[in-house]
Design a protein around this nucleic acid. Structure first.
Length: 569
RNA sequence: CGGGGAGUAGCGUAAUUGGCUAUCGCGCCUGCUUUGGGAGCAGGAGGCUGCAGGUUCAAGUCCUGUCUCCCCGACCA
């Protein structure tokens, strides 16, 4: 391909609304353009790279026994009513009507669609197991699209679904897919970590997220040297050892205008570990109190899952006043004005002589003890894990945090969808059973952005060899020079004949511009043909990731041979 | 949806208390000179200053409405 023939509108400066480095570089390199918030056009160069990611994923899916299909992007409401997700999915679901006023949604994911396909076409255990996958545009009306194509309202996803006769078979296949996802991350050159995750709106019993480690990642990961890793939304926490401490008498203390744990602990000169925070939540219109130790935070994802609630929000000021009899900051479990359900996080069950709000403005209670002074209905793991916590898995190591970009998510769905949509098969005894499902998503466009986040320098993108839109760029310093042109075309023909993707910068531009654009677009190998070197029978070969000191002077045939060797052609 | 900021040419930007033909750089077109890390000179094209209303002799600038974009908090690949 010749640069002058291709639409590659590079920019010296990124638009001011581009927020992260990958978005800035993709726009500057002429790969994408923004149309509107969360909506992007893929230009030829961007699409070429995207297709390479797609190919890697497709190869791994096929190797794992998957079969590619295409489902519609537009789904009728009825299908989504069957699983209840028409109502549960909320505002994130793009909804629209056809000319007959029939309602549809744009697929944010395709469990309904695939389960419908399966229930109509699978009848027997003989047809199982089966894995179907597709590459399809997904639509999500994100609250706040950002980070370029990382969190867009329309994006390319590979979604795969597996169907099994029983849990044991799903379990077996889940491991195969786990390995396939690991391979994909490795082939994309990622520094990554597979972590346990919360399942969210997709549902199911268990899931793993594949996180690309990056400071700009939106996700927080808790991990331990023992190998345990989890999204902090999901990470389990352990109860603390009971302390042997004499129970003191409860007393009221005056804490004027001091409501926060931090302030009260300073005022009373008491450690936040001695505090019990009382958080008032409204779960599906039912108020409840959650107790958590003063130095921790309630994990609302865990709480919502524990309650099985569709909606969970912190109570507002007036509700708090109504329930506790005091303004926000003075809530406590002792003598709540209204009797509501009290759930204790594991972190508070062994706190003795605690400090709590007095449910009275400007007062706290000291030396409060569960059982004696108040009772809680139940206890559960409801807090957010903290750095330095003891690992819940090996129970020895200390938890550290990292940030990550979620590029893939694998779920054990079980029978969530087959049950609500009645997808069943007949087993060897002629007995009807629900099909057991797994589901596996990868953000294809997000992988592209994550790759750049992990691999760039001040001059531009540095593509790994197998994702790069072109593998080699030939830069003839002066394409108008006949000998240069001949040499460039010869090398181009030899490399493309062997199947390499090569771009020739035939533009009538100065060398500096060509070098800058080559660096910006991040093509991994560059052959530079200058008249002086060529007169001596040489061309230059340089890897994008190397600096100027990495330039090698080679005979054209040797440069070609080296590149063919690198790409194993 | 709540709170904060911003919309001027393809990109980045300037315009004093409201005041002349809306500034500059990059990019684009033409010509000449250059030609190994974003060249120089000369000439040129490109704007309903987001949109709609209002105030005023006069609006990019002030007011109202509206749309869009960005940032901070509740979702997910």
């Amino acid at each position: 391909m010749y640069f002058s023939k291709m639409l590659i509108p590079t920019l010296r400066e990124a638009p001011s609304d581009a927020d992260i480095i990958s978005a800035k570089l993709m726009i500057r390199a002429g790969m994408i353009r923004k149309v509107s918030s969360g909506l992007y056009e893929f230009l030829p160069l961007g699409l070429k790279a995207l297709r390479k990611v797609e190919t890697i994923i497709r190869e791994e899916m096929n190797a794992a026994g998957g079969q590619e299909v295409i489902l519609p992007l537009l789904f009728p409401k009825e299908l989504w009513l069957e699983t209840g997700r028409w109502n549960v999915y909320g505002k994130e679901l793009f909804r629209l009507k056809d000319r007959k006023e029939a309602e549809f949604c744009l697929a944010p994911t395709a469990e309904e669609g695939i389960t419908d396909l399966i229930r109509k076409n699978i009848n027997s255990y003989k047809q199982l197991p089966l894995m179907l996958y597709q590459f399809g545009t997904k639509f999500r009306d994100e609250i706040r699209p950002r980070f370029g194509i990382m969190r867009a309202r329309e994006f390319l996803m590979k979604d795969g679904y597996s169907f099994h006769a029983d849990e044991a078979d799903l379990e077996k296949y889940y491991k195969i897919m786990f390995d396939a996802y690991t391979n994909i991350c490795k082939r994309c050159g990622f520094k990554f970590r597979a972590v346990e995750a919360a399942s969210g709106a997709i549902g199911g019993s268990f899931s793993h997220e594949f996180m690309v480690l990056a400071e700009t990642g939106e996700e927080e990961i808790a991990h331990c040297e023992c190998g345990y890793g989890a999204n902090t939304e999901k990470a389990e926490t352990l109860p603390f050892e009971p302390l042997t401490e004499e129970l003191l008498n409860m007393e009221e203390v005056f804490t004027p205008d001091i409501g926060s744990v931090e302030d009260v602990s300073k005022f009373l000169n008491a450690n936040p570990e001695k505090f019990i925070k009382t958080m008032i939540y409204i779960a599906d219109n039912q108020p409840l109190a959650v107790l958590v130790r003063g130095d921790f935070e309630v994990n609302e994802v865990k709480l919502q899952a524990y309650l099985g609630a569709n909606e969970l929000v912190l109570a507002d000021e007036s509700t708090i006043n109504d329930i506790t009899g005091a303004p926000c900051g003075f809530a406590g479990p002792v003598n709540l004005k209204k009797k509501i359900k009290i759930i204790a996080d594991l972190s508070v069950v062994n706190v003795k002589n605690a400090v709590v709000g007095a449910n009275k403005k400007d007062y706290h209670l000291k030396n409060v003890n569960a059982g004696r002074d108040y009772k809680y209905g139940e206890s559960a793991d409801l807090r957010k894990i903290a750095e330095g916590d003891i690992c819940p898995r090996c129970k020895k190591g200390k938890i550290s945090f990292s940030r990550g970009i979620e590029v893939g998510h694998a779920f054990k769905l079980g029978t969530k969808y087959s049950k609500s949509m009645n997808a069943s098969y007949l087993d060897t005894n002629g007995k009807e059973n629900l099909i057991v499902m797994g589901c596996y998503g990868i953000g294809v466009t997000r992988i592209l952005a994550a790759t750049i986040e992990q691999s760039h320098d001040e001059n531009g993108i540095i593509w790994p060899d197998n994702i790069a839109p072109f593998e080699v760029i030939i830069v003839p310093v002066n394409f108008a020079d006949e000998k240069t042109k001949e040499a460039a075309e010869k090398i181009y023909n030899e490399l493309t004949a062997k199947g390499l993707d090569v771009l020739v910068d035939d533009r009538d531009e100065r060398a500096g511009i060509k070098f800058k654009d080559a660096d910006l677009t991040g093509i991994p190998y560059r052959i530079t043909i200058g008249e002086k070197n060529l007169a001596n029978g040489n061309v230059e070969l340089k890897a994008r990731k190397d600096g100027k000191e990495g330039i090698k002077l080679l005979k054209p045939e040797d440069a070609v041979a080296e590149l063919l060797n690198i790409f194993k052609k």
